[in-house]
């Protein structure tokens, strides 16, 4: 029984990471109707910024943290200007390719600038974790789970109860109508990229002490987050969270009780099952996509 709880905790922990990254996916998808294949690099870049500020420059953790998030805001804006904005009137395919190009560019530029060595980033909290019975709760995973809850609450409040949030929502639902209503659509999309980069960056910073900082850290997570997004229902924030958590739990239990080497396979099998039997996801209305 303890084993079940241990696996559950771990699954929710890793699932929260998927969920955070998925949140960034959903926001960009809703605003622009494209999937950002460079989403994983948001996490990677932020973790490297943390390494630069807190490890190399030895600045205090909190200052480094804020600077890194600020850096991610700028990065998100630049990403929008360079990768999405010039292609906004084209179909989704060129944008996908352009984000793939960005992913290659960013990860290898990081390699060129920072070298191939994985880096160690200290966790935010000093104590490593504690036991409840024989179940070990890792402090960093607890922090990730907690922050995910806070962020989801914040996001809900932001989109439902603030003017800016409502404008963003209007933009993602109908760009033409939004611009008729006098909402500056380009600015709204810019803000979406900025926010998405910051969320992805936050996920990267949180997960770095566990998975280490390397140029490849974002890739696998982003792919799982993408799967989570679809399981939850594309375009639905709550769905992304549930999808991420479900994926984390399913693959952890699948690994424990079926097969460890096929762990990544479970995520995709579940995904295919969802696509075949419930393409609209757990929650979301199916997003109509034109061929």
């Amino acid at each position: 029984m303890d084993m079940v709880f241990q696996l559950l905790f771990q699954g929710i922990g890793i699932g929260s990471v998927y969920a955070l990254v998925a949140l960034g996916f959903v926001l960009i998808f809703r605003a622009t109707n494209v999937v950002n294949f460079a989403q994983g690099e948001f996490s990677m870049v932020a973790a490297f910024l943390m390494v630069i500020f807190s490890v190399d420059l030895e600045w205090p953790y909190w200052i480094s943290f804020l600077l890194s998030l600020g850096g991610m805001a700028i990065y998100g804006a630049l990403f929008n200007l360079g990768v999405y904005f010039p292609l906004r009137h084209r179909t989704y395919l060129p944008v996908i390719i352009s984000t793939i190009g960005a992913s290659i560019l960013v990860s290898n530029s990081t390699l060129a600038l920072y070298g191939p060595q994985p880096q160690v980033l200290q966790p935010l909290l000093d104590f490593p974790g504690f036991n409840i019975g024989t179940v070990y709760l890792d402090a960093q995973y607890l922090l990730i789970i907690g922050l995910t809850v806070v962020l989801v609450a914040f996001q809900y409040w932001f989109f439902e109860h603030t003017l800016l949030g409502k404008k963003l929502q209007a933009t993602s639902q109908d760009k033409e109508m939004a611009s008729l209503l006098g909402i500056p659509v380009a600015t709204m999309i810019m803000l979406t990229f900025v926010y998405s980069a910051m969320i992805g960056g936050l996920a990267g910073i949180l997960v770095a002490p566990i998975l280490f900082v390397s140029i490849h850290m974002g890739g696998t997570i982003a792919l799982k987050a993408f799967a989570a997004t679809i399981i939850g229902g594309f375009g639905d924030v709550a769905g992304a969270i549930i999808g991420g958590l479900a994926l984390g739990v399913i693959e952890t239990f699948g690994a424990a009780y079926v097969s460890v080497p096929y762990k990544d396979g479970f995520a995709f099998l579940v995904l295919v099952a969802f696509l075949v039997f419930r393409p609209q996801g757990i929650f979301g209305e199916r997003v109509a996509e034109k061929a």
């Binding site: 360079g82 990768v83 010039p86 292609l87 084209r90 060129p94 390719i97 352009s98 793939i100 190009g101 960005a102 992913s103 290659i104 560019l105 960013v106 990860s107 290898n108 530029s109 990081t110 390699l111 060129a112 070298g115 191939p116 140029i215």
Partner: peptide, 22 residues
């Protein structure tokens, strides 16, 4: 001589081609 540089240029080229040669 600089690891990653040529793949970075490759990535940049992909973006530029998508932008300018649709």
């Amino acid at each position: 001589s600089i690891p990653g540089l040529y793949l970075a240029i490759y990535g940049l080229a992909v973006i530029l081609i998508v932008l300018f040669m649709p």
